[in-house]
Nucleic acid binder design. Sequence first.
DNA 1: TCTTAGTCCGACCTATTTGATCGGAGATCA
DNA 2: TGATCTCCGATCAAATAGGTCGGACTAAGA
Lengths: 157, 157
Amino acid sequence: MLKISKKADYALMALQHIASVQFGDVTPGRVVNTKEIAEEYNIPLELLAKVLQTLAKNGMIDSHNGPKGGYLLARGARQITIAQILESIEGPLGITDCSHEKDGEFCMQREHCNIRTPLLKVQDSIYQLLSSMTLQDMLGGTPLITIQSPTAQGVTR
Amino acid sequence: MLKISKKADYALMALQHIASVQFGDVTPGRVVNTKEIAEEYNIPLELLAKVLQTLAKNGMIDSHNGPKGGYLLARGARQITIAQILESIEGPLGITDCSHEKDGEFCMQREHCNIRTPLLKVQDSIYQLLSSMTLQDMLGGTPLITIQSPTAQGVTR
DNA sequence: TCTTAGTCCGACCTATTTGATCGGAGATCA
DNA sequence: TGATCTCCGATCAAATAGGTCGGACTAAGA
């Protein structure tokens, strides 16, 4: 449960790769094309292409057409958060269906729903976590993220 | 994205309801049956029945057969965590496919996978969050949970 | 003791989502 | 101008989730 999709997985891998090439020591600034990434990580080419297109459309990467074309990060690796990447691919993050209800639409249970508020809290926490982590944090092997979640004992509010 | 299933939603609602009846002021200790919950929250009866059966099988609630039968919490509301409930319904929690790979099986990308480690970290954080929250925290309206996720700046390790 | 209301359990169907594929149009550079 | 890219939409198949059905078993109450 709570799984993220393969597409999102691919997006993360691809961005990590692009970032590491772009800011790496070997060939800094080099443009990376779809095929290279697909072969490196055994990702179906066409699917990866779609993922990269989506990322480009959402301003995560810049695309360059024609031969010797490919992709570059649109911003620095610190300016791209994991939350942004995931939302680019999978749409707005939401634990529950009722997270982003507009206008008149609401779930069948809304009226007597007893879990909406606490779940929205959980959702916020997860969102904050994903927003606090950037592409930069995924470079260089070991990640540095940590979290403290005090049990509900008279905290905040 | 990262949505939890309707079944899990129903499970949370049902447990919250059972807990609030059982420990409430009106009719403490009363047994609650499937129909009552289904009607209260507009949940399809048969589906809810399945959910409750699963919860019973996993030791979250005790079932009582026959007329005047129904369900009771198997433990105190503080002893049941959100993580336990969700896992009862949806199986082990895992952000990525490769979270619980056994033996020889591994994803196509494993070999060069560059995002496994950081994602597992994220997963741990979420799991801790869900484990720190109990059914008790969902009673009484406003939840008290909070979270602190320091950006990756020289933390832990 | 018999009936009835309830749980229990498993098989089943359907709709939605996801993963993956195909084909052509437009851009760029040698 | 042709080869090599990205771009974009349409499409398909498989997996999963949501929801349904029917029957067996159990226990309380008349």
